[in-house]
Design a protein around this nucleic acid. Structure first.
Lengths: 208, 208
DNA sequence: AAAAATATTGTACTGATGGACAGAAATAGG
DNA sequence: CCTATTTCTGTCCATCAGTACAATATTTTT
């Protein structure tokens, strides 16, 4: 996994070097050829076409974090909507940058807490009204499964591959398959697709 | 700063011990007397009164993370609304738990990425409608597809295999694959599982 | 104590899946 | 008339998913 910092002139700020000694500077023109899926690319909003660049890189499977000199909620939402996984002030300290990297490379999303509070506060009421009557509906197929099987079933229901489930639960892929076979038999479904449908019919799914 | 795990019986799962050797198990009755401002308390939703407990602990200045066996958006928002700083799957690995701790003890908020995407996606659309800068107006991903692609997408979302879709639409399996490839690219998903999730999440988002 | 359930991992196989190259015909808009 | 879009199809190949045989260790139940 490589680190790239994309600016207009390919300069590498001292702060970034301190946080990631192995990071490489790059420019908008060449980053799309050099970056590969799984890499972490930091894109400055001083790059003229940072939005298109973010979108394309995200589609490539690249983890993108946007660096802005003047962070604001609207730009942050735009960045995340385009597939960016983080939005940080360009002048963030090395410590913060390292933490951001840790979070986004582990399937997390980094976003300023003021924005998050604002968004969650506003959304909660509308969303809870909508789901109130549905959420506590009875028959739960998950009760038929063992604790470990539940973990596997929930991960699969979120769209994870066997390999991903194995990594998440810290077991081998073979064990995941074993659990899945048991799950399929217990819930009488033929594959993971039907499992998703069966589970999503009774509950809303989210992940960690 | 102390770590506490609150369950009904005060048990301490092996996974938690691995993540935090110094963590202490506790029960709802005594945690309010023992925890102090700045402490990190993990509360399982199996605790009957986890909501009141979360609220009271948060008001005390305690950092609270909620652990749920069956995470869902509504519960997550409720947890955060009550002052919780994180919402994680009970079966999260030690690595994930450690990362959550790192984030929440550093003024961060931990929330599932699907929920975040939903909330951000919803807010972004509302926001851009208001400012009228970004058009797209495509609330439904199906609008991005051609008629034939829509048929394939819907069949797949119902859990059909390629062979079944082919029979239903009276085309060859190869053609189904071609449509699917186009669908994956247009909707920026990696496989049929993610397609199912994407389509089912739009329906839920219809209200905002 | 014995039996059952649970959790884990192994190899080998078949069928399904998705991408990499494609090409060909029909239709609609300029 | 030309071009772009849509629809349909082909082969090859690497990877994934699920099963068929397993076996072993731990925990729980009887």
């Amino acid at each position: 996994m490589d680190h790239w910092f994309v600016t207009m002139d390919g300069s590498l700020k001292a702060r970034w070097e301190k946080a990631f000694p192995n990071a490489q500077p790059s420019t908008p023109n060449v980053i799309e050829k050099n970056a590969r899926s799984g890499d972490l690319v930091w894109v400055a909003t001083t790059v003229v076409s940072w939005q298109q660049l973010t979108q394309r890189l995200a589609l490539m499977g690249v983890t993108v974090v946007i660096l802005s000199y003047a962070p604001n909620d609207k730009e942050a939402l735009k960045a995340l909507d385009l597939g960016g996984r983080g939005y940080v002030h360009t002048l963030a300290t090395a410590d913060v940058l390292k933490q951001v990297a840790l979070v986004v490379t582990n399937q997390g999303v980094w976003v300023g807490q003021e924005l998050l509070a604002k968004v969650i506060g506003g959304t909660f009421k509308a969303l809870s009204r909508r789901t109130e009557e549905v959420s506590t509906a009875g028959s739960d197929y998950l009760d038929l499964l063992t604790e470990r099987e539940r973990g596997v079933a929930l991960a699969v229901a979120r769209g994870a591959t066997n390999k991903e489930v194995a990594r998440q639960l810290e077991i081998t892929e073979r064990t995941v398959k074993a659990h899945l076979s048991a799950i399929f038999k217990k819930l009488a479904v033929r594959d993971r697709l039907q499992l998703m449908l069966k589970l999503s019919s009774t509950r809303e799914l989210a992940s960690y």
